[in-house]
């Protein structure tokens, strides 16, 4: 159970404090894969519960926020950089929940900052690497089944996914460019999945090959870009769409390279 302290009039933070905190909060939320509309709503919710007004400009890699205190006419602006981080629904959910706690439980500024630092330090309760690997492999094998793959194809896809995803983790740990990582992972997964056709062990080798790289498809950026288009955040939407397109192109290059070497499919 977390103890909280409700805000009194004396606890009211300054516009500068609120602005600096909200810039940190916003960049963390944007970095973990939140849509622009969620960012706007959460920031407005927190600012309103502290009696402030905000104006936000969301750029693909920067957040520009101005906080106004109607009581004292103080105005403060901050620009913060979005740190590139992995998409994390857990972090996304916890940060959104924090905004509701500020609004509903009237959390004061110090408590909110403490809770925020705690959430960031724990990375939103991230899975262990082994657990993540197994879940991704199981998910991709399930995709294979959904597309009509047999048990052998599912097993081949699971192994190909394990190898490709493991390579992805290793390369990202060594700070290799993400586009090169996607290409290499797709290549390895495609080559290993082609083993189904090469050794003639299953009846659906095509499905195994096609679904072996699905774990690399940037689903979240594609969905977020569509959401941003709906809410007229065109710059962010376009940026996310281009990012996702580049990733898909790298995935295709890696997969085509694998298929070419394995004498599979369209070549």
């Amino acid at each position: 159970m977390i103890s909280t302290t409700s805000m009194t009039f004396d606890d009211r933070p300054s516009a500068r404090q609120v602005c600096v905190f909200l810039a940190r909060y916003g960049t963390a939320l944007l970095g973990c894969g939140a849509t622009c509309i969620r960012l706007e709503k959460n920031i407005d919710r927190i600012a309103a519960s502290w009696g402030m007004k905000t104006s936000i400009t969301i750029m693909p890699r920067h957040l520009h926020i101005t906080v106004t205190d109607p009581g004292s006419d103080d105005l403060f602006t901050a620009i913060d950089e979005v740190s590139p981080a992995a998409v994390s629904f857990s972090l996304n959910t916890r940060l959104s929940r924090l905004s509701w706690e500020v609004a509903d439980c009237h959390l004061n500024y110090d408590n909110t900052v403490e809770r925020f630092d705690d959430i960031i330090a724990n990375c939103g309760g991230r899975l262990s690497r082994g657990g993540e690997l197994l879940l991704v492999a199981a998910a991709n094998a399930s995709f294979c089944r959904l597309f009509g793959g047999d048990a052998v194809a599912m097993a081949v896809v699971a192994v190909a996914t394990l190898a490709g995803y493991y390579l992805k983790i290793l390369m990202l740990e060594h700070h290799i460019d993400v586009r090169v990582v996607v290409m290499a992972s797709a290549f390895v997964s495609a080559v290993l999945a082609a083993g189904d056709a090469l050794f003639g062990i299953g009846s659906t080798p095509g499905v195994a090959l096609a679904t072996s790289v699905l774990y690399l498809v940037p689903g979240v950026p594609l969905l977020n870009s569509f959401s941003d288009i709906l809410y007229r955040h065109y710059i962010c939407a376009f940026s996310r769409l281009v990012d996702a397109t580049v990733t898909v192109a790298c995935l295709s290059i890696g997969m085509c390279g694998g298929m070419l070497l394995m004498n599979q499919g369209m070549f």
Binding site: A194, G195, L198, L261, M262
Partner: peptide
């Protein structure tokens, strides 16, 4: 040995 077989063995072997 064919190229696909060699490629597959190399990738699988490297991973092992």
């Amino acid at each position: 040995m064919s190229l696909p077989f060699v490629t597959w063995c190399c990738i699988a072997g490297l991973f092992v």
